[in-house]
Design a protein around this nucleic acid. Sequence first.
DNA 1: TGGGGCCGGGG
DNA 2: GTGTACGGCCCCA
Length: 767
Amino acid sequence: MSRASIWIFDVTTERLGGGDSIVLWGLRSDGVVTPLVDTSFEDHIYVAGLDVEEVRERASVAAAGRGRIRVEPVRRRYRGVELEVARVSGEQEAVKAVAKALDNVADVFEADVRLSQKYILYRGVKPSRWYEAVYEDLERPFYPGAARLVELNEGADAPPPSLKTLALEFITLSRLGSPDPDRDPLVAVALYWGEEVEWISGDERSLFERLSEIVSELDPDVILSFGGNRVFYPYLVERAGNLGVSLRLGRYPGEIYQSVLGHFSIGGRINVDLYEYVDDSPIFQMKTLEELTAYLGLSQPRVRLDPHLYAHYWESDREALREYVGWRVVSIYNSFEVVREEVVSLSAITGIPMDYVLTSSSGRRIEFYVMGEAVKRGELIPPQVERRVRSYQGGLVLQPRPGLHRDIAVIDFKSMYPSIMMRFNISPETVVEGRVENGEYFEELGLSVRRDIEGLFPSVLGLLLSKRDETRRMMEGLSRSDPMYRVLDARQRTLKILANTVYGYMGWGAARWYSAEAASLVTFIGRRMISRSMDRAREMGLEVIYGDTDSLFIRHDPAKVDRLLGWISEYLGMEAKVEKVYRRLLFTSAKKRYAGVYDGVIDIVGLEYNRRDWCGYARELQGEVVAEVLRAGGVGRSLDILREYVSRLRRGEVPLEKLVIWEQITRPLDEYRVNAPHVEVARELARRGWRIGRGVFIGYVVTRGEGPIYKRAVHYLEADPSMVDVNYYIEHQLIPVVHRVLEPLGVPRKRVEAAARHTGRGLDAFM
DNA sequence: TGGGGCCGGGG
DNA sequence: GTGTACGGCCCCA
């Protein structure tokens, strides 16, 4: 019998010696891998709507020959109602057969929760945390150090052990977008584990072998990539299959395989694909590694190559390629060093193992957390079903007063939707149609909120937010350099993000706890609160300029604004604060589009400047014009700036990359019903063998010629500067972005157009 | 000239 | 694969 502190990095189900085994993949504090096998955990389902005796009869028939099962009556709650249900437990295969047999005649619960997930939920074991484990030798360990779990208790709240990490980046000779395993060979792999970049290249078979060898020797806990799940692992698996070679990256026999949601499992190791981290966050517009490293304050590449052109550089400039790919693999490694705490806390809080927590969607993340709380409260977990979704009204957006304003205070409700849900007890099971006893009725929607039970979601929100407060208190005593400080900071941010997704989750059609009614009640109360606050502000003599969902823009009068905040707290029971005070603020005539300056910081919201479907050159121009208007308090030199931009474009001094317009493919190409420029370019690429799926970014430039733009859009790799339709860029990119900013100042479009025409020297050069 | 499809980003 | 509100592009009738 041994004891040790173990950090659990994954929980998996394995078939070891016949039965179902749960394996807790543990790391000891000295870094030794210790898989703990637990054979004592049984699968189960709950069956409602059928007499327990009948469940027993039907279950024994269905399970016959597949293993022993047990059926017992238990009390559980479902949607706020207590009921008696049958709990069927036993070996996985037998329980699955029972679930299938009863599916048509009764309500079956938790058949769609995987066994390893049930282990986490019912044993209360969360991955990415420390435990005190007692274990004994296995007769036949399937991995060196594997042991039988005897006892497990919560351990210290401490930083994770050091994880041995290996970053991978692949070079394939793909000339047509993402690599095709039937066509494009793998020519090199770059590996980095904190020392020197290691390269393998040469004959493809030996390359696969060498890769397996290095991974096995190095024995990393984490394998990092940027785009592994989307691009490289599917390619590698098929390519290895085509060549008849095996790719062994896992800790025990068995190759990598695709599991849920496009995630690849690498047995006994953690597969972290940082593309998924970037894809998740709106901070990263183009979803590139360069954006990630810039955001994290890491180095940028000295040479920057387009990954679509690896095959080209492999032939023409292998040194540059080597340098760039080397930068990438090091950057992937270094980026993970910075975001590791965030990934760990996301896993530790939600209960989803690190291995696929980044792959799972934000809806599934909060859902798994809710599932854990439901189990603790004795509530059944609703099944995942296909359903029709009902749309409902969202937040209130006020019409702005266009023009340049001074000293505008932005008042924000703090966590508006979570606060409303907690204050009004709004939850999928507490919001019901019509009037109920002990309920609060909302006439306008015909919905009531039950007050006789505490809602699951308000309770989840209360937990998340109180844990966040507690975490922030713990941080107070620590210095910023303390490793625990980073852990706690990541934790409190994660808790906030999770709390903010709870409302959206309820309105999501694929959610187990879907409730458009509850979601619509939240937004209704939000609209009412903003609207009442606005009325109150006006009664107090404050001038309301604008507002959106949970904010009000008010001409600043500190004393009155303070009183308004007090009123909001007292009469609405909500906390609001002055988020910032804009010294100057420019509203366009459109909602959600404005720019302002406070404390020397320029905010640009909703304008073309922030949008990747406008070319970089126009965005840059608008940024300059906005800065000029806010500085000058009027038009200032704006039109001169436009003239300069037009001249430089006409003189051919603008690099092609600044003229590229980026748009995303959001569906399979044959589902598009329109001829749009980016779709047409994508179709052309597809005809030539590119694999264009959802999420692919199409960059194009508009070239000279006849006809609609979709016929003149050319992929940026196919275009050269002489093809550019300069007039299109002037008329449809440069003039509009300047006009957008100057129009609220009373500048007519004709004046902007005239400025673009009169550019002085260089005019007509290309006409 | 106006409506529909589509996209991106705001809160 | 969290929600809705919104503006503005291009295309087409």
